[in-house]
Design a protein around this nucleic acid. Structure first.
Lengths: 213, 213
DNA sequence: TAGATTGTTAATCGATTAACAATC
DNA sequence: TAGATTGTTAATCGATTAACAATC
C-alpha cells in the first residue's frame, strides 16, 4: 500500500519544521491563513525557503492568500509523526537528564517521557519534574510492557554503550543520545546524537574570525 | 596583515571538529600518529570525509603514516579559537542553565563560564556546580569589567530578547541562545541558536518512516 | 620494494535560490 | 483589474565522494 513516492524530505528541511510549528501555532490564534512571506519574515528566513519547505506538509496554498494554518500544522505534525505521541524513557537523572525531564512542551513535539531510570540507588523512588525515577533494573520490563519506542540517554559517556545495549534488547527502536560517543547499535535502530560542542564550535569560529579581521 | 586566503571552512566541517578533538585526545595517549582511516573507523565516518576535514587544521600528514596527533589537536584548536579560553556568562539558572553550568569539559571546548545570573532573588547568592549565581542587575558591570565576549541564554523564551539586549549593551559579541525564539541583535553580534526539537524531529521522521514501511 | 596513506583535482550529489506562469 | 502569492521547473551553489599520482 504505497503512496505515490513523495519527494523525499531533506534533513535540513525536517530540522526547520519545529520552528515553523511554533510560529504557525502562534499565528493560528490571530489568523486563518499564513503566507510563506509572512512566516519567513517572522523567522528571518527567505520566503522561497519557507515555500519549498512547506511543500512537504502537502497542503495546498491559495495564491495571493497563503496556506490554511490549521491544515499546515496538521500536515507538518503528520510528516514528523507528531500527531500521536510516542512514549519515551530517559536513562541518567543527572543535571542534563533533569533539564530534559523539565522541558515543557515535549508534548508539542510528539513525545511523552514516561519515566526516568538511574543506577544510583539514592535517586531511586524520587520524582523529578513530576516524573518518577526508577531503578535501572526495572527498565527492560517496563519498556517491553508498554512497547516504548524511544530512549533518551543522558548518562556519562562511559556508561552510554551499556545503556544503549539494554535499550535495544528491551525493544527500543530509536535512541536520542546525549553522550559524546559513537554508539554501536543494530542497523534497524535509529540513533540521533546531540553534541552541544557542535554549536559552540560554530559560534567560536565566527567569534575568532571576527576578532582577527 | 592577511594570510594567503585559506579555503573557507564549511560549517558542516566545523561542527565535526569537536568529535575529532575528542577522538584525537584519546588516541594521543597511545600513539603519536593517527591516520584518517583510523579516525574515520573510530567515528563511523568515511576516510575521505576525515581527510578533507583535517585539511582545515593545516597540519602536514605523512603518506603511509598519518598525521602527528599533537599537531593536529593544536591545529584544530587554533581553527576554532579554542587554544585560549573565552570567558562567558550564563543567564537563567533554571534546569537547563544548571545542566550547562555542570557540563564538564567546557574547558576542552575553549570556554570558561565565569558565573551565572538570574532575576529570581531566591537564587541570588547561591552556587551551582561551583559557579556563583548573581543578580541580573550585576551583569552589565561584570561583563564590561572583565571584557566577557560570550553570553549564554537559558531563560524562558518570553525573557530571551530582553536578556539579549542587555548582553549586547554590555558589550557581548557572541550569544549562545537556548530559547526557542529568533533574537534580534546588531549584525556584528553572532548568535548561535540551539533547538533540541531539531534533533527530535530528525529522529521522529526516521521512526515514523520505519513504522510505515 | 610493497603497502598504506596523503594531498589535490575532478565528478557527483543534494540543497538553496532564482524565475515565472498560473491563480486567488 | 491589480497585487500578492502559490507551485513548479531550471540555475546556482556548496558539500560530499571518487580518483589517482606522489611519497613515506
Amino acid at each position: 500500500m504505497n503512496v505515490p513516492t513523495d519527494k523525499l524530505p531533506s534533513l535540513a528541511a525536517i530540522k526547520r519544521m519545529p520552528m515553523y510549528l511554533r510560529v504557525l501555532k502562534r499565528m493560528s490564534e490571530k489568523a486563518e491563513f499564513a503566507s510563506a512571506t509572512k512566516v519567513a519574515e517572522e523567522l528571518g528566513l527567505e520566503a522561497i525557503v519557507v515555500r519549498k519547505d512547506l511543500e512537504l506538509a502537502e497542503v495546498l496554498g491559495r495564491p495571493g492568500v497563503g496556506y490554511p494554518i490549521k491544515d499546515l500544522i496538521g500536515g507538518i505534525e503528520n510528516l514528523l509523526g507528531w500527531n500521536n505521541l510516542s512514549d519515551a524513557v530517559l536513562v541518567g537523572a543527572g543535571s542534563l537528564g533533569t533539564a530534559i525531564l523539565g522541558y515543557q512542551g515535549f508534548a508539542n513535539y510528539g513525545m511523552n517521557v514516561v519515566c526516568a531510570f538511574d543506577s544510583d540507588p539514592a535517586k531511586e523512588g524520587s520524582t523529578i519534574h513530576n516524573k518518577k525515577v526508577l531503578a535501572l533494573s526495572k527498565m527492560t520490563g517496563l519498556v517491553g510492557r508498554m512497547h516504548v519506542q524511544m530512549g533518551i540517554i543522558t548518562v556519562p559517556k562511559e556508561g552510554a554503550q551499556e545503556i544503549a545495549d539494554l535499550m535495544v534488547a528491551a525493544g527500543i527502536r530509536a535512541i536520542w543520545n546525549f553522550a559524546p560517543i559513537k554508539l554501536t547499535v543494530p542497523e534497524q535502530v535509529d540513533v540521533q546524537n546531540e553534541d552541544l560542542a557542535e554549536g559552540l564550535a560554530a559560534l567560536s569560529v565566527k567569534l575568532t574570525h571576527k576578532n582577527k579581521s
